[in-house]
Design a protein around this nucleic acid. Structure first.
Lengths: 227, 227
DNA sequence: CCCTCCGTGTTGGATTTCCAACATACATTT
DNA sequence: AAATGTATGTTGGAAATCCAACACGGAGGG
């Protein structure tokens, strides 16, 4: 387990907890290390949602099987990332999604109860972990709200501009780089890649922005780059 | 304050806390009652996000002022409902939204710190409240994910069917009633009201469903109503 | 160098949505 | 009864999207 201390340190769940303390708590938390292959399920849909997972190595993805038989990838989690916490915290009886490996790896599985239960002995860190959970959940909340706020726009142009402006805002500059290629951006905005490319071209011709691959500059904000 | 105990009982934050205990804690929480009019701001955008609000009477709405000057109503909160908790828990410095009254009313404003801080004296309920917060946040998370999952479909038909199927699933019956009128449903699904009505008519003609106002029955699930 | 792959931009026709307008049904008010 | 308001359904042309296809340029491999 010691080999994973470094990864666990990066997990928001253990934020503010020193390595030596972390080591000590792991026993109290009673987690188990699951080894998974590409495509293998770590959590299966319809199984109880009592556990929180933390990716130690490799990567996993959250897969939702639709009513109509399609499967959509909701999210991808890398080492240090957490999964299943929302379902466990919400107290749903059964998982509506499957969590499976994208490549071989390991994950630490912890029963949520072990995190939230204030134990009588040494570990004074349960409180800290619960606060970390709270913060992580709230942050995800805001992230989802922002995405909803963008994708609820009706036209490709409106979605794109809302996204670019939020990115500029975040970067505190009218010049910024986005973490998506065209196809991924189109998926994020729920629009057609070709329509997206066309719209970017149109905005460029109209003098609204300059762009070069994933770098964008919003023009006409009449403030020289500061947002 | 006693007059509001009944409303507060309904708030998820105080779930599992007896009325007499609740009364006792209110002092410890150090909340203040804010009175507001229609259109008056309870929390203003760009102000610090340290507080959680609970609607006691009347109603409030969460308003987002866009980059381009538009204002969109993100949510509406009725008595017993909570607001601002995600921003406070996420630890954002300044509120990105305004919370204002939809009609005259009152709200209990509590500093988040007072909820999360384990106090030395009597109130053993801080822990319970933090768990309630955690649960509420997780539930909202799932709710947002579900909405995103529905609205990210491309066509009116797909959005509508995804929504109806999730509703049928929730009701555990192919016959169910939705909590929206046509315009509200169109807003929720991010589609045109007229296109929505047209699509419902089409699905009805195709024998996929029967509907009467807000009551729907999905046909062809070849299981006699059970989902 | 040639070739392939990949990301991006472009284009045109089929399809869908959008928008405004009107039709219908029902409830409430006067 | 008449008038008014509200919710829903319908329709037709304008506008936007979707989809498939192809063009272009750079990266990397043989």
């Amino acid at each position: 387990m010691d080999e994973f201390i470094e990864v666990l340190q990066k997990c928001v769940l253990f934020d503010g907890i020193a390595p030596r303390d972390l080591k000590a708590m792991l026993g109290c938390l009673g987690g188990r290390v699951a080894t998974f292959d590409r495509g293998e399920a770590i959590f299966s849909a319809h199984s109880p949602a009592d556990d929180v997972g933390i990716v130690l190595s490799g990567a996993v993805q959250i897969v939702l099987d639709d009513f109509d038989g399609n499967r959509t990838i909701q999210d991808r989690v890398e080492p240090g990332g957490m999964f299943g916490e929302a379902f466990a915290c919400a107290g749903v009886e059964r998982l509506p999604v499957t969590v499976e490996g994208v490549c071989p790896g390991r994950a630490l599985i912890i029963r949520l109860r072990r995190i939230t239960a204030t134990c009588t002995n040494a570990c004074a860190f349960h409180n800290r972990m619960v606060m970390n959970l709270l913060r992580a959940m709230a942050a995800k909340n805001l992230q989802l709200s922002r995405k909803l706020e963008i994708t609820s726009r009706r036209t490709t142009r409106e979605k794109l501009m809302a996204y670019l402006m939020s990115q500029a805002h975040e970067a505190r500059s009218s010049r910024f780089t986005i973490p998506f290629d065209r196809q991924a951006l189109a998926d994020y905005l729920c629009v057609e890649r070709s329509a997206l490319s066309a719209e970017i071209g149109r905005l460029r011709r109209e003098g609204v922005l300059e762009s070069e691959r994933s770098s964008f500059t919003l023009l006409g904000l009449e403030n020289g780059g500061r947002i």
